[in-house]
Simulated assay, not measured.
Amino acid sequence: MQGKHHGEYKVPGGKLVVVDLDVVDGALRDVRVAGDFFLEPDEALDAINGALEGAPAETDARGLAARIDAALPAGAVLFGFSSEAVGVTVRRAVAGAQEWTDFDWQIIHEGPQPPALHMALDEVLTAEVAAGRRPPTLRVWEWDRPAVIIGSFQSLRNEVDAQGAERHGVTVVRRISGGGAMFVEPGNTITYSLCVPNSLVQGLTFAESYAYLDDWVLGALGDMGIKAWYKPLNDIATEAGKIAGAAQKRMVSPVGAERSASARGGDGRQAGGAVLHHVTMSYDIDAEKMVQVLRIGKEKLSDKGTTSAKKRVDPLRRQTGLPRDEVIARMIASFRARYGGAMGSVSAQELARAEELAAGKFSSREWLTRVP
Rank of each mutant, 00 (worst) to 15 (best):
G3P: 08
K4D: 07
H5M: 04
E8K: 09
P12Y: 06
G14Y: 03
V17Y: 07
V19H: 07
D22W: 12
V23Q: 15
A27S: 15
D30S: 15
G35W: 01
F37V: 01
E40P: 02
P41I: 12
D42P: 14
E43C: 13
E43V: 15
L45G: 05
L45P: 04
A47H: 01
A47I: 00
N49I: 01
A55C: 11
A57G: 07
E58T: 13
D60F: 09
A61N: 01
A61E: 03
G63W: 02
L64P: 13
I68A: 08
I68K: 05
D69G: 08
A70M: 03
L72F: 11
A76I: 00
G80T: 01
F81H: 12
E84W: 12
E84K: 14
R91V: 06
R92W: 08
G96N: 02
G96A: 09
A97H: 03
Q98R: 06
E99M: 02
E99L: 02
W100N: 09
W100T: 05
F103M: 07
Q106L: 12
H109I: 00
G111S: 05
P112W: 06
P112C: 10
Q113V: 14
P115D: 06
P115A: 15
A116Q: 06
H118D: 14
A120C: 09
L121A: 15
D122C: 11
E123D: 15
E123Q: 15
V124H: 03
L125Y: 08
V129Y: 05
A131Y: 03
G132S: 09
P135G: 13
P136E: 05
R139N: 13
W141Q: 09
D144A: 14
P146F: 08
A147E: 12
A147C: 14
V148D: 08
V148F: 14
G151N: 07
G151V: 04
S152Y: 15
F153L: 11
A162Q: 07
V172P: 01
S177G: 08
S177I: 03
E185W: 10
P186A: 13
V196W: 09
T205W: 09
L213I: 03
W216D: 09
K227G: 13
W229F: 10
K231H: 12
N234P: 05
K242E: 03
I243Y: 09
A244N: 06
G245W: 00
G245M: 03
A246T: 09
A246K: 01
P254D: 12
G256R: 02
A257C: 02
E258Q: 12
S262E: 01
A263E: 00
A263L: 02
R269D: 12
I285T: 03
A287G: 10
V291N: 10
L294R: 04
K300I: 10
K300L: 11
D303G: 15
S308E: 05
D314L: 04
D314I: 01
L316F: 05
R317T: 04
Q319W: 04
Q319A: 07
Q319D: 05
L322I: 06
D325N: 11
E326S: 15
I328C: 15
R330T: 00
A333L: 10
R336N: 13
R336E: 10
R338V: 08
S345V: 00
E356T: 14
L357A: 13
G360I: 00
G360M: 00
G360K: 00
E366P: 06
W367Q: 04
W367A: 13
W367H: 09
P372W: 00
